[in-house]
């Protein structure tokens, strides 16, 4: 389904692949890779801070920053996880659908929609992540405390539950990212069908 905005689509040349590459080859996007890494970094640092309680130490050194981080680290963790998941989902959807179906313009549209929908999706994905499996709860706590002692065991439990919560949020967001790519492909195909510029003339 060549996008109507792709003037090379009539000859079958892909919009997303570099010249000379196979039509099915996905051109690597350094910007997308950077965004994904940045989202993961923000989310993981916030998660680690939340789990380990770094803000208590930071307040002694930089009280204002420590206070700000204490107030926002949970939301930074949720936001980082959701952004990371959305980007992974978009990249995965792009890889499954192929370069012909997902042009650079469609990818930009998907990213723009993801940015606009990020805040509501953070709340939705985080709420979904709070449902169901949390690592076994009491069983995990019992194992960790039995193995590491009470103080260390409780710290490890906090870290484990935070990590599980982070990755569950990201997984739900990834599903949303793949669904977003599906909708963008559908919209592009519909636009092509409705204005009659669907690739080569019949």
């Amino acid at each position: 389904m060549n996008a109507p905005d792709d003037p090379a689509g009539a000859e079958g040349a892909p919009g997303g692949a570099s010249a000379g590459a196979s039509p099915a080859t996905i051109a690597r996007s350094p910007m997308l890779a950077c965004l994904t890494a940045a989202a993961l970094l923000v989310g993981l640092i916030a998660a680690a801070s939340y789990a380990v309680g770094v803000t208590a130490v930071l307040r002694m050194v930089k009280p204002a920053l420590g206070g700000w981080l204490a107030a926002h680290q949970f939301y930074l963790m949720e936001g980082g996880a959701t952004a990371f998941g959305l980007l992974v989902g978009i990249r995965l959807g792009r890889r499954i659908a192929g370069a012909i179906a997902v042009t650079r313009r469609m990818l930009a549209i998907a990213l723009a929609i993801a940015l606009v929908a990020l805040v509501p999706l953070v709340h939705l994905c985080a709420a979904m992540a709070r449902l169901g499996w949390n690592g076994g709860g009491a069983r995990l706590e019992s194992w960790l405390v039995g193995r590491e002692g009470y103080a260390a065991g409780e710290k490890y439990l906090d870290t484990a539950i935070t990590a599980i919560y982070f990755f569950k949020t990201a997984a739900y967001a990834a599903l949303g990212g793949v669904a977003l790519i599906a909708i963008v492909i559908a919209a592009s195909a519909a636009r092509g069908s409705s204005d009659g510029t669907a690739g080569a003339p019949d």
Binding site: M1, G12, A24, A97, G98, A179, I181, I185, A189, A198
Partner: peptide, 22 residues
Amino acid sequence: ALGLALYQYGRLGAELWRVSAS
């Protein structure tokens, strides 16, 4: 199901469109 549908209508569908253009 979502992954397979994306593969079906995205990758295969685009290939079908391209191959049958002429």
